[in-house]
Amino acid sequence: MRITVTVDGTTYSDEVEPRTLLVQYLRERLGKVGTVVGCDTSNCGACTVHLDGHSVKSCSVLAVQADGCEVTTIEGLARDGQLHPVQRAFHDNHALQCGFCTPGMIMQAIDLLAEDSDPEEQAVREGIEGNLCRCTGYQNIVRAVRDAAHEMRPGAGPEAERVSEATMGTQAGVHRS
C-alpha cells in the first residue's frame, strides 16, 4: 500500500508491503542506515527513532502505521552542521565505544530530556532502560545525558558546562564518579 511519511524533514511517498517494518523502510528504502536493528523483541532499543515527536522502537512499528507521520532519526538531528547538544555531550563524555547502540541511545535521551529537562541520575537510568549498551557500562552515557540537560537548560551557558579536552587532560588518572 502507499504511504506518505516525512523523515528528517523530507517527505517520501512509497508503495510498501504491509509487513515492512518502519526500520526496514528507513534503512532499505530511504537509505537511512544510521538507524540500526539489534534484536527481534524490542528489548535493545538500537532502532529508536521519534514518531510524531515521541520515541519508538522502529522495529516494532510497521511502516504502514507511520503513514501520515513525521519521523526523526539520528541523521536528522544536526542543524546546519551543528550537532545536537545530546550528540555533542555523547562525544564530550566518551559515552560511546562501538557506537552501535548510540543512535537509539541518543534518540531516547532526547525524548527523556523533553519530558524532564533536568533528570537526576536514577531518572536518566530509568529513562534509558529500554536501550541496551554492551560497551560503556552506561556510566558515561548517564553523565552525557545530564551534561546535555545542563547545556540545554535555558540560562545555562553552554561553555560553562562543557567538559573540555583541556580539563579532561589535567584530570588524567583520577576519575571518581
Binding site: 524490542s42 529508536t48 519508538v56 522502537k57 531516547q108 525524548d111 529513562g127 532502560e129 529500554g130
Partner: peptide, 9 residues
Amino acid sequence: VADPQVRHR
C-alpha cells in the same frame, strides 16, 4: 510496563 518507548506505543 516495559520501557518508555514501548509505553509510547
